[in-house]
Nucleic acid binder design. Structure first.
Length: 424
RNA sequence: AGAGAAGUGGCAGAGUGGUCGAAUGCACUGGUCUUGAAAACCAGCGUGCCGCAAGGUACCGGGGGUUCGAAUCCCUCCUUCUCUGCCA
């Protein structure tokens, strides 16, 4: 969440930033936060004064009792009781104000970076790079949902039988291809200096709040009601929360973690005609890279992460483009996001396979993730993450772009991991 | 899952109703001494919030309660350990 003192100091700039996201009443929203914070401060001051007086009296009662002055002690008790009731009232006001302030802050998304393009639709995203030639479609080319049936490698009907729509079963070479991609992605990340973690795939409410999935976005996550836990929508959540309430030594920066997990998304109401096959699933596999970095260096880190994702797509020989997302398309907690899309020849569509973001201190503020500088002062860190990569659409593109009359050819980089070169 | 025990500052560990935000030791930081280091000695050393500051306030696993006053008593939840059961 945003930092109140920053809102106060940069009110005009922040208002403009939120308006860029299409939030019409941005000025009023920020003003409300500032006023709630003023109220919080003045209430605290009043409360502290009352508590101070009450504490002094209580101490004096103790002394009076020791000295045997019971009458004076009893008189003091009377007064303290009165102080107590007014302190209770004020505490309630303080707590309510704090809650209101937090709730107001939770509703405000991150301020977009100045270089984020304005706009509200996909067309407003800025294309930073794209392949020279889109791959040609063979005469007999078919979309992946037909290929997976032809070669019997992914079975949606079986998934429906045991779970429901959007939970495919990977079989034979399909299952092996999954495993190969995961291993390759983890190996590449390790080469790039990331340290692997295997986090839980269910998280508690505090973790959901830490990275901004909660409150308000409960609908995206599966909830286990009898234990009050959530299935992770991305490994970003457990991995970033590793550093919740942590103070890091400046010399240990940056922290680079990679993790492979299944991801679970309810995707309630977002199903449409163009999300057939692997394009949108309730459960999918993803390798995620996460970095915690010094505020001065997070943009270099962002670039480094973008380069890493790009290198994976090159190794897989997939036609891709890189987009800088416009303000309207930006995720709630993000300051700036680059999307990677691969081109699927058979569907004649771009498919999003990775999203790399800098959250600056927006997540760190909720997480209380800080570093200690050389003067022992504490400052918030910056968090970043990116998919490197999400499997289903990569598989869709590999299948569709690699198809020939005699089978599906896989890129050379994958052969050591799959143990086979074609699916036929 | 059942029975029992316990959760205190970076760590260890005292404290069972009143100058306790908390002894002591270790670790850490600064200083004295030393050619340098070690040792010894002196001083400092938790966090959030309010405040220009002085200072105030809150925090002893979380939440609630009793009391003029709670680390200390009560309730509840969580976690850890031991034993029993179950299990990949």
């Amino acid at each position: 969440m945003l930092i109140v003192s920053d809102i106060r100091e940069n009110q005009a700039e922040y208002t403009a930033g939120l308006e860029k996201r299409g939030i019409a009443n941005a000025a009023a929203i920020l003003q409300e936060v500032i006023e709630l914070d003023e109220k919080r401060k003045s209430t605290q001051t009043q409360l502290d004064e009352i508590l101070s007086e009450s504490n002094k009296m209580s101490k004096s009662i103790g002394l009076l009792m020791k000295e045997g002055k019971h009458e004076e002690a009893n008189a003091a008790k009377q007064k303290t009781s009165e102080l107590k009731s007014s302190s209770k009232e004020l505490s309630q006001v303080l707590e309510d104000t704090r809650t209101a302030l937090d709730e107001a802050l939770y509703q405000i998304p991150n301020i977009p970076n100045p270089e984020v393009p304005a706009g509200n639709t996909e067309e407003d995203n800025e294309v930073l790079y794209t392949v020279d030639h889109l791959p040609k479609v063979g005469k007999n080319a078919v979309p992946h949902w037909e290929l997976i049936k032809k070669y019997d490698i992914i079975d949606f009907d079986l998934g429906v039988k045991i779970t429901g729509a959007g939970f495919p079963v990977y079989k034979g070479k399909g299952a092996k291809l999954q495993r190969a991609l995961v291993n390759m992605f983890l190996d590449e990340a390790e080469k790039a200096g990331y340290s692997e973690v295997q986090p839980p795939v269910v998280i508690n409410e505090a973790s959901g709040r830490g990275t901004g999935q909660l409150p308000d976005k409960e609908g995206q996550m599966y909830h286990i009601s009898d234990s009050d836990l959530y299935l992770i929508p991305t490994a970003e959540v457990p991995i970033t929360n590793l550093y919740r309430d942590v103070i890091i030594d400046e010399k240990d920066l940056p922290i680079k973690n990679v993790g492979f997990t299944p991801c679970f998304r309810r995707e309630a109401g977002s199903w449409g005609a163009h999300v057939r096959g692997l394009n949108r699933l309730h459960q999918f596999d993803k390798v995620e890279i996460v970095q915690v970095q010094h505020p001065d260096r997070s943009f270099d880190t962002l670039k480094e992460m973008v380069n890493h994702v790009e290198s994976l797509l090159k190794k897989l020989e997939l036609p891709y483009r890189i987009l800088k997302l416009c303000a309207g398309d930006l995720g709630f907690t993000s300051n700036i996001t680059y999307d990677f899309e691969v081109y699927s020849a058979a569907q004649q569509r771009w498919l999003e396979v990775s999203s790399v973001s800098n959250f600056k201190n927006y997540q760190a503020n909720r997480l209380k993730l800080r570093y200690r500088d050389e003067n022992n002062a504490k400052h918030l860190l910056h968090t970043l993450n990116g998919s490197a990569l999400a499997l289903p659409r990569i598989i869709a593109a590999l299948l569709e772009n690699g198809q020939t009359d005699s089978g599906i050819n896989l890129p050379a980089a994958l052969h050591p991991y799959t143990g086979f070169e074609t699916i036929s």
